[in-house]
């Protein structure tokens, strides 16, 4: 019976662990979101030299966020970024901008 209680205790811990995990964002969320940009802006925002698209790695976070906000509002003219920036939440764009700013 003692053993049973011990095992049951572990079980409870496991259940709680799963609940906490479900409520928490993935530790790599920013990395994963930023990876959706790589197709055009290069792996980790390092655009292929001479390819013609802006590299994002190392760009100041506030500068990048302002650009993204201007794309969303239409203040900044674009061929495609006005459409793409509207697909992400403000919080997601913040994570993406911070991730690229930290790539030196």
């Amino acid at each position: 019976m003692k053993l049973l209680r011990w095992v049951a205790g572990l079980g409870l811990a496991g259940t709680l662990g799963a609940v906490w995990a479900a409520g928490q964002p993935d530790p790599n969320l920013a990395r994963n979101l930023a990876a959706t940009c790589a197709n055009c802006h290069g792996t980790d925002g390092r655009s292929v030299a001479g390819a013609g698209n802006e590299g994002l790695a190392g760009t100041d976070k506030d500068t990048l966020m302002q650009k993204l906000r201007d794309f969303r509002s239409g203040a900044r003219p674009a061929t495609i970024m006005h459409q793409i920036s509207r697909g992400y939440t403000e919080a997601q764009l913040e994570l993406i901008a911070a991730y690229f700013a930290a790539r030196k």
């Binding site: 790589a38 197709n39 055009c40 390819a51 013609g52 698209n53 061929t79 495609i80 509207r86 697909g87």
Partner: peptide
């Protein structure tokens, strides 16, 4: 979100090749 080009254009011709090289 999302959408299509307003019209066919040369600038996106350049972006298309930039897309290819980066992907």
């Amino acid at each position: 979100s999302g959408g299509v080009s307003a019209a066919a254009n040369e600038l996106e011709g350049k972006y298309a090749m930039a897309w290819a090289k980066n992907i």
